[in-house]
Amino acid sequence: MWKVFDMADKKTIKRKTDFKKGLDIFLFLLPAILLFVGILIAPIAVSLYRSLQKWNGFSPGTFIGFKNYKDLFTSGSINWMTSLKNALIIAFFSVFVQLPFSLLLALLLGRKYKGERFFLTVYFMPVLISTVVIGQLWLKIYNPDYGILNRALAALGLADWQHVWVGDPKTALGSVVVPTIWQYVGYHMLLMYAGVKGVSPDLREAAMLDGATNWQVDRYVVIPVIKPIIRTSVIFAVTGSLKTYDLVRIITNAGPTHKTEVPSTLLEDMLFLRNRYGMGSTISVMLIILCFAFALAITAAFKEKEY
């Protein structure tokens, strides 16, 4: 796009004065900058500053250096390590279960089966539904007495497998992971499907003339070509997992006994239950660092694998 820009430069018509132009640029950017700096950039700067303080949100804070960061990783009562572990487990399942399945669906739908559009449309539907609704719905499915899951198990003669899914420490995290993965398969599938459909027909043709089967075309032509999309999906899946909040709040409410705590629920607790605004800021900063670190690491990992 910058090439087009250069051409336009040459044709640019002389403007009255540089000052007038500068003022116009400033005014055009003003609403966006006010919103962006006011709600995103300035608060992050404040968070960075407050993360170094012991602060209850109202009185002036006292500067304590990196003690919050140290406590975050060493104090068990804060539950940060549990929350981080849970977020990483969700990320793991997203990357290694959800994405491969999404890719499989995208490749299969790229095979021009009858009803392709129908399947695509149906698979994308859960993405449009609010996570709060999804959470409520799955709560009904998990309900120990009346939920479909336990009833289905009973009907299949597997009554031994019945659980208080959401309340049992062993299954609580799983009961959050399953809906999370289920909901966004359609999203990743759609992105990958767009990539599959965008692969140049000449490339496919060439591979097939060399005798490749459909699977080999997918493996050696399509997947390498859509690698940038897969990378985007991996980044979205990982950063999305780190940010998980809605489903945990609705389904398990971070329980039982903080077993399913994730960074965002912890952050909320610091503000409303424990009045530890300094520590809350520290968690915010850690989340930003983690999101950027993972995004960079994933980008780097994909670069190395290119040949």
Partner: peptide
Amino acid sequence: FFMLGLTIPLQASIVPV
């Protein structure tokens, strides 16, 4: 600068705001 917003998590600004 504006594209930074694609990676920054919403949670980042919740405390100060």
